[in-house]
């Protein structure tokens, strides 16, 4: 094989260029797309990519957050501030409203609302007539995601059928859908957790404070650190400790656990991510530990 002669992009530049291309394909092919924005690190990367893709114009889509009502204040405040700074429209739809409507029924008051986001998302899709939802999911996160398309087709019930996905060749994406159906587009499919952190550092992206090391009361359970909050108070017999922790992902309070860490800067987080011995979801997600196929099951039911 010949030696490298032709000028090529660095891996981050390549990933960025691919993601911008995907965002522009969604804007070019779909009539009414929306970008799912939670205030978390992956969706913050999406916002920077959207700036690179569409500035000096406005984004050709609004931002949408499906709020379980169980998010950390630091994250929702950050979400609102970031949307305002960008001058883009943020729509928030809440799982609590779906509960009031009776479309979400919890098995018991303490059940995690995380998986019920699917219902609220589908209601929002119907309310606004969105034909595509841009999300920050990555294929390295979880094994069901490893087989996900960049443009993933969902039927009118929002269902993902892993056996009936469109072949995706070259960079010729097919985002066509009939009325009522929906495309989920994942511009950072090919990124890993380390790529995300490297991009955040390179682009100097601001993040919610809870991504950085801070002291927080937690209870050790099943190998995870469960944060002690109003929503998740310590139970009788629990040993509450103040531990230096940070969040690797910032989902629903009831199912997202922090990790022990003294990484209070991006450099330290990068060093830790490069040498970590536990996957992002394995270290942090209580919902994925229920069964080997729980992400796949949620996706079939319309999850992101």
């Amino acid at each position: 094989m010949s030696t490298l002669t032709k000028q090529t992009l660095s891996h981050l530049d390549w990933l960025e260029a691919e993601a911008i291309h995907i965002l522009r394909e969604v804007a070019g092919q779909c009539a009414n797309p929306v970008l799912l924005f939670s205030g978390g690190k992956d969706s913050l990367c999406l916002l920077r990519l959207a700036e690179k893709a569409f500035r000096p114009g406005r984004f050709p889509f609004p931002l949408l957050h499906i709020d379980t009502g169980h998010n950390y204040r630091e994250v929702t405040d950050f979400r609102d501030r970031r949307a305002a700074e960008l001058g883009e429209r943020l729509i928030v739809r809440s799982v609590e409203d779906s509960m009031t409507r009776g479309t979400v029924v919890l098995k018991h008051a303490g059940e995690s609302r995380n998986k019920h986001q699917s219902v609220t998302l589908l209601e929002a899709i119907e309310e606004f007539g969105f034909d595509a939802c841009i999300g920050g999911a990555r294929r390295d996160e979880e094994k069901a995601r490893a087989k996900e398309r960049i443009m993933s087709f969902r039927d009118e019930f929002g269902q993902w059928d892993p056996k009936n996905q469109r072949p995706e060749l070259w960079n010729l994406y097919n985002a066509r859908s009939h009325k009522g159906e929906n495309i989920r587009a994942f511009p950072i499919s090919n990124w890993t957790e380390l790529d995300v952190w490297q991009y955040i550092q390179r682009e100097r992206l601001e993040l919610p404070s809870i991504y950085f090391a801070h002291t927080r009361p937690v209870v050790r359970k099943n190998g995870l650190l469960q944060p002690v909050t109003e929503l998740t108070p310590a139970k009788d017999g629990d040993v509450v400790e103040d531990v230096l922790v940070r969040f690797r992902t910032v989902g629903d309070i009831t199912c997202t656990a922090p990790v022990e860490s003294d990484a209070d800067t991006l450099d330290k987080i990068l060093a830790e991510t490069a040498t970590t011995t536990i996957t992002e979801r394995g270290a942090t997600r209580m919902d994925d530990q229920t069964s080997e196929a729980s992400m796949e099951q949620r996706k079939k039911e319309g999850y992101f």
């Binding site: 490298l4 891996h11 490297q198």
Partner: peptide, 11 residues
């Protein structure tokens, strides 16, 4: 780790 942050040989 020792090579962070830049991967120089692309993808």
């Amino acid at each position: 780790l020792e090579n962070l942050p830049e991967i120089d040989n692309g993808l």
